[in-house]
Amino acid sequence: MKDQLKILVLDDEPIVCKRLKPALEKLGYEVDTFIQSVEAMHQIHQTSYDIVITDLKMKEIDGMRFLEEVKKQRPQTEVIVITGFATMETAKQSFRKGVFDFIAKPFKLSEIQEVVNRAAAKIKGAAA
């Protein structure tokens, strides 16, 4: 589509990816999902994403490192962190790394849709 925004979702729990993809596509975004952080890391060097949604606590690469890399690659990418309650404190620290917002798991579809829409509005506002 014309000015469709691109979103990357990374979470090692497949259910999160499987459910987020259609929920965001219905809002008019183009969505790629990954359950392997290594593959996602590879992907962000290939394609530029407007919005990245990532879990913090994963096997292999730590979410914090992933989002640093995202920001390094493309500073204007907005990052949304999704995380369990236990890692909420760490999540708050991520604010300092320029994270757009964070959401505690479990979350409602409508919650994440709202945050993504806000991020999109910011991106479109910046472009205008």
């Binding site: 729990e13 259910i15 459910r19 369990g84 309650f85 979350f107 409602k108 409508s110």
Partner: peptide, 12 residues
């Protein structure tokens, strides 16, 4: 189905 949750939430 309104929420997204994972196994960890169930275990917790």
């Amino acid at each position: 189905g309104e929420y997204i949750f994972d196994r960890k939430y169930l275990a917790d």
